[in-house]
Nucleic acid binder design. Structure first.
Lengths: 166, 166
DNA sequence: TGAAGTGCGACAAATTTAGTCCTATACTGA
DNA sequence: TCAGTATAGGACTAAATTTGTCGCACTTCA
């Protein structure tokens, strides 16, 4: 990183909720088990030690949004509705956490609650889009094998940023 | 599950706290008033209609970190300790919100609390660095005049991302 | 000396996130 | 057809975080 690394390594700025984490972990798991016709929420939850009911809700949400296909009943569960390469981290996070804005003061399409002064919002909105772009360039498949992903040429955006910016 | 806002426009991913917002707004204000020797927290708070005491704390923090210089007593207040061009949004956000990690499960340098399975963390760490890079490429000066910033060549990273990603 | 500042620690309120409970419904297989 | 296993989802509680307030000590300057 340029020079002002303050502590440890791995500082960051983006904050994912646990639900988004769970969702990404689950999709990764599904991508790693293409053999299984469908995997139950409980199986995944057990594997990672996360609350089954909470994961269930996350998966239900991902199903609702169309990223997963569900199957009730015995031997039921979930499966990716597309190839892992075709599902971006952005889609997952967006589906679970909903649209988040870079500035806290931006709610929906309304401007700042009280003041017309939040002139900071506009320039940061572009940053926001940049970040969305990065997230869109990462697929669930990339999560499965990060090294492979790094070697690929397709994510030039990410590697570009990685080498140039940090 | 909380709000299920699905539609809208202007989606984003990065979430800043209000404190970080306030900090950026204050720095922007200071950058816009280079004439003033020092500006009090109250002045800025009044301008933007934000809680004075809260802003005070934010400014104190920025001072502690070295981004601002403070002066107590009458006619006291704060001033940028460097040129606005030399202060990145990353520094501000990091100073106020502290190091945030892209995955919620990463605490300090420890791995996931319970499981050794959070293999998602590692690939996302690179995304994290990318985002940090974007934020580092944005200066307080850029907030003052976003259009000027867009025209400049120096933030090629941002414009690149902007055009390619979203 | 007193008014106007910063510097800080403790605390209270508000909001968000995480997790649980309960019930309904769907599918499967014996 | 019935019992067991799974998804679907609403309501609710608990925990954590964020936001904001209060009070006091200290500094500066007129």
């Amino acid at each position: 990183m340029g020079g002002s690394r303050i502590g440890e390594q791995g500082d960051g700025v983006l904050r994912l909720t646990k639900k988004a984490d769970y969702g990404l972990m689950a999709l990764k798991y599904l991508a790693e088990h293409p053999d299984s016709v469908s995997v139950s929420a409980k199986d995944i939850a057990d594997t990672y030690g996360i609350p089954p009911q909470l994961l269930a809700k996350v998966l239900q949400r991902l199903t609702k949004v169309g990223l997963l296909r569900s199957h009730a009943g015995m031997n039921g569960g979930y499966a990716l509705s597309r190839q892992a390469q075709q599902i971006s981290a952005f889609e997952v996070i967006h589906a679970i956490d909903g649209p988040l804005f870079i500035t806290s003061c931006t709610k929906g399409s309304k401007s700042c609650d009280l003041e017309p002064n939040c002139t900071i919002k506009e320039p940061l909105a572009r940053v926001n889009e940049s970040i969305a772009g990065v997230l869109k360039s990462i697929s669930v498949y990339d999560l499965v094998d990060a090294d492979t992903a790094a070697a690929r040429g397709q994510d030039g955006l990410v590697t570009l940023l990685h080498s140039q910016a940090v």
